[in-house]
């Protein structure tokens, strides 16, 4: 773990703990936090997917303070420990949901944990194995982890089960400075690249998650950072998911947002990242959570649906021409904001 500016980390963690303390919600450890089905582009083509957010006691880093934009710690159990049997009960619930929603099992299963699936303190090796085995007949199973837990001894047992294993890594940005000092996430790009090597050796895939528009950056700075980050990731991941910030409760980003100091990115920016990185080797996709709402990535309100559909289309076809089809007066507004907004003059289009 990098320690570039421990003073910054301390300050952010202190502030974030205070913010999170305002939350007093509690969750049932035998229910997954969320579960849904969708269609996803995989290296093998578009597949029906079953996605779930498991409640595994939540992100340990978030308990220390955590990332400035992430509110998922709030959705964890009170004492931070979820028993193995409870986890497996969550898996049962997920399967039940799938049976309701789909005619046949989804070839792609994605299990997020708001933490690290590979972290022993969240899930034991046996539980991990049992979970993947429950989806042993599927084509591909994706789980989430920080780079530090991506080791051969943890990967090999899972890779052996059957489905192609993918590890989702929340890299957020290729810039170590922005990752640490704007997002308060404390590993380096070098650590991510190394983990990616380890995974490749275990025949495990890497899917990198990037954050579009961390706090403190102007729209242009955020856009430039995302484009650069996609390019640098492409060598280390078969898929890059660009996640525009949505304003989650009990986060630093939310505090800025309420004080008119933060605006989620424009959907034009999401489109622009995808368009400008379409030439990279990796699959580049984006699923803008909360799109079109004031707390999520949004344009003017008139064209949000249109642009969101183009992004969805791009996600499947990786064809930048999809963006030629969409047009709105507010694209000029967005370009003006790109030209004029400085990080000291945000939010310009309030």
């Amino acid at each position: 773990m990098s320690q570039g500016r421990p003073d910054a980390t301390n300050a952010f963690n202190g502030v974030m703990r205070e913010i999170r303390a305002r939350n007093d919600e509690q969750y049932d450890p035998r229910e997954p936090i969320r579960v849904w089905t969708d269609e996803d582009l995989t290296p093998d083509g578009v597949r029906t997917s079953l996605t779930a957010v498991l409640n595994t006691g939540g992100c340990r880093w978030a308990r220390a303070g955590g990332c400035t934009m992430c509110g998922y710690v709030a959705e964890s159990v009170p004492d931070g420990e979820v028993a193995s049997e409870d986890i497996l009960a969550q898996i049962d619930a997920i399967a039940a949901h799938e049976a309701d929603a789909l005619d046949e099992p989804a070839p792609l299963v994605k299990l997020y944990t708001s933490g690290s699936f590979l972290d022993e303190r969240e899930l034991s090796g046996a539980t991990r194995k049992a979970i993947v085995e429950r989806f042993g007949d599927r084509e591909r199973v994706l789980v989430e982890s920080l780079p530090e837990f991506i080791t051969a001894d943890r990967l090999d047992p899972l890779a052996a089960i059957g489905p192609q294993i993918d590890i989702a890594v929340g890299l957020e940005t290729a810039s170590d400075r922005i990752r640490q000092e704007c997002i308060n996430k404390v590993f380096t790009f070098e650590e991510f690249a190394a983990a990616s090597e380890v995974a490749a050796d275990a025949d495990v895939g890497i899917k990198a998650y990037l954050l579009l528009k961390p706090p403190f950056l102007s729209e242009r700075e955020a856009l430039a950072d995302a484009v650069e980050s996609v390019r640098r990731c492409a060598d280390h991941a078969h898929t890059v998911s660009v996640n525009p910030t949505n304003v989650q409760q009990y986060t630093l980003v939310e505090d800025l947002y309420h004080a008119d100091g933060y605006r989620p990115p424009w959907l034009w920016s999401v489109a622009s990242v995808l368009e400008r990185t379409a030439d990279t080797d990796a699959i580049v996709v984006s699923d803008p959570v909360g799109k079109g709402s004031d707390r999520g990535p949004h344009n003017c309100g008139e064209c949000d649906d249109l642009v969101a559909r183009a992004i969805e289309d791009f996600d499947r076809r990786q064809e930048p021409a999809v963006f030629d089809e969409v047009d709105c007066d507010c694209e000029q507004t967005w370009k003006e904001v790109l030209d004029r907004e400085r990080s000291y003059g945000m939010v310009l289009d309030a």
Binding site: V15, F216, G261, V347
Partner: peptide
């Protein structure tokens, strides 16, 4: 916030010195 910056001291413009700007609401 993005990277280290330098200043052109010969500029005749009013130069905003390298900054870490804090948006409204920054703790």
């Amino acid at each position: 916030w993005v990277t280290d910056r330098s200043v052109d001291p010969t500029s005749d413009a009013l130069t905003v010195l390298p900054h870490r700007a804090f948006p409204a609401g920054t703790p």
